[in-house]
Design a protein around this nucleic acid. Structure first.
Lengths: 194, 194, 194, 194
DNA sequence: TATGAATGAGGGTTCATTCAT
DNA sequence: GATGAATGAACCCTCATTCAT
């Protein structure tokens, strides 16, 4: 099965280059990182990158692909009989928990480009953001009356995104616990107000 | 008072360049815009920019300065006797309302750079983000018991940031009304859950 | 006769590659065509070309070889008793008639390289140009007195080359008929001049 | 008159670069010559070339411009009462005489590109070829009956082009004298044929 | 202070060629 | 012989920045 072997080797090299690209982009940013940098980090010649990726932008797309895959496998489906509190906690904690180490930097780099590249934004939204935010959204939605569903979904999504953004901008920021956020959302402000 | 006059003229030129930079960066993005572009838009020679700003990055810092000033003046202090609902609405609406036209694009561009430049991030957080988010925060805080104050502030901040981000990524996104968001936050989820 | 067979197979592959090179060079030009293009058109791997040809330039030489062979077989020897008019017509028409479709484009490409590569020019002149132009020249020469022979040969050659060049440069150019050219050359200008 | 001065200086630099480009292209050919080569020959930095010419192709166009100008000034209008023989001689000799030293190499380089670049060909034909060939053509035409005019013009043009091409391909080729060519054309072949 | 031509490092990318399989 | 991934030099061009005027 020579074919299978060479295909596997090819994919390995591709991953090797992609790993390097991720590391380099995370460290220097997309624009500041040169293809030469990526090649050096991957231990290949500059021209070799183009055997695996059409151009620099394709590296970004491939990174989004990988994030998409990781997001999918990192999102546990909540049990059907979960109560609302647990659902809220899961909806908030899962994406935040995914933001560790390299993934954080990856998200940072991708987001920076996404803000400036319309096409990339479309890909990012479809492949990463929507799955990440709506995973528990469906179940959450089933607990809510139609009228306020959209508001709540948007709100929870915004909270997650906003918290991530805060962490991206200020690495030292101490984010509240998902449990506390869930409790606050559940109880509402009415009771605590004077 | 020759000095004063020349100083005023200098500041005028500086503003002229900065206006051009804002327009160009907003339209083409920071990296895609060249100093030549900025100079052309400002009606000056490329070299002249460096009489007013040390380098390209300094333009970004100056833009943040200006955003900071505008954010301050655009944030109306709420009346001391405002009720909680109105405060929430203001806290959410004000920053969202500021995101119109060029400001949106500028925010997009700055944010993209901020994500990648640590020093710029620090400036941005201190000069733009914190004032923007905490403007009504203080008053809001006064209505809340100490224990949940941080959670709520973070949450409202995150909602605002998250909604802005969603709009930046998906220009077609329909965001919920601040009133609906405030009402939902006030009432909480508890009552609507089955 | 294994050797003979493998030799024949080898020559077949070689022709296959050469055909592809001709087609690709004619379509894209020598510099614009990459070895990858040629390989793809030939249905072989890029590296395989180098089993048959030393390098890209060798392909050009081989093409000239083939043109030389074709030129030889395409040039009918005029009957010994042909009259001068028919000889002139043949001398002009034959090379022009050979310039059809792909051959035209090939000639164009070769000529472009020949103009810039001294060694290639030498080959081209000896192998293609001289045979092409002098085919009927010998017979033509036999009708002419020694003194004016060279002038006439050069002139007829130049006419043919010049017409081809005009067509290469301006595809829409309408060239005069060989018959008319022959008649004009035969009669001379003297009579028509006032 | 600062403006006038700077304009003149600019044109000088431009000429300096163009001279270098001509020399380098003539020596190495268009494709083989790099912008670095041209810059080095011109004694400027690589990037400086782009202050005067949009890109490498623009250098070629500028060279054509220059050839066009030289061709125009090198073509003396024949006296109205010139006889046919002198006209023929002039029509043949003038373009051939222009092909000296650098101009020859220039013509070689331009022609090589013209054969491969359709747009360039159009420019070349309009700006250089047509003026060069038709200069004496008009006067020549006035001596000819309408019916054979086109044939003769094409033929004389072809002779000139063909002779030039022969010299470009074979630098050692000994071309016939314009006088002999004119005499042969005038007398025709009829009389010399047995 | 304003200019804008000059700079030259560095960018992404191509491609003829090699060589281990 | 055939392969095609790997190579890396070289390509054209951009652009932030400088500096003589």
């Amino acid at each position: 099965m020579t074919s299978s072997l060479s295909v596997r080797v090819a994919r390995l090299k591709q991953d090797q280059v992609l790993d390097a690209a991720i590391a380099v982009f995370a460290r220097k940013g997309f624009h500041a990182a040169s293809m030469r940098d990526v090649a050096a980090a991957a231990g290949v010649a500059p021209g070799s990158i183009y055997n695996h990726f059409e151009n620099k932008a394709a590296l970004l797309l491939a990174i989004i692909d990988r994030m998409s895959a990781r997001a999918a496998e990192a999102t546990p489906l909540p049990p059907a009989d979960a109560n609302l509190r647990d659902l809220l906690i899961a909806a908030i904690r899962t994406p935040l928990a995914a933001m560790t180490g390299e993934t954080t930097e990856l998200f940072r780099v991708i987001l920076a480009e996404v803000l400036v590249d319309r096409d990339l934004a479309e890909q990012f939204r479809r492949r990463v953001l929507d799955p990440m935010l709506s995973a528990c959204g469906d179940v959450l939605a089933s607990h809510l009356p139609q009228v306020s569903r959209d508001t709540w979904l948007r709100m929870v999504s915004a909270i997650v995104l906003g918290l991530i953004l805060q962490r991206l901008i200020d690495g030292d920021a101490v984010l509240p616990l998902p449990e506390d956020l869930a409790d606050a959302l559940l109880a509402g402000l009415q009771d605590v107000a004077p």
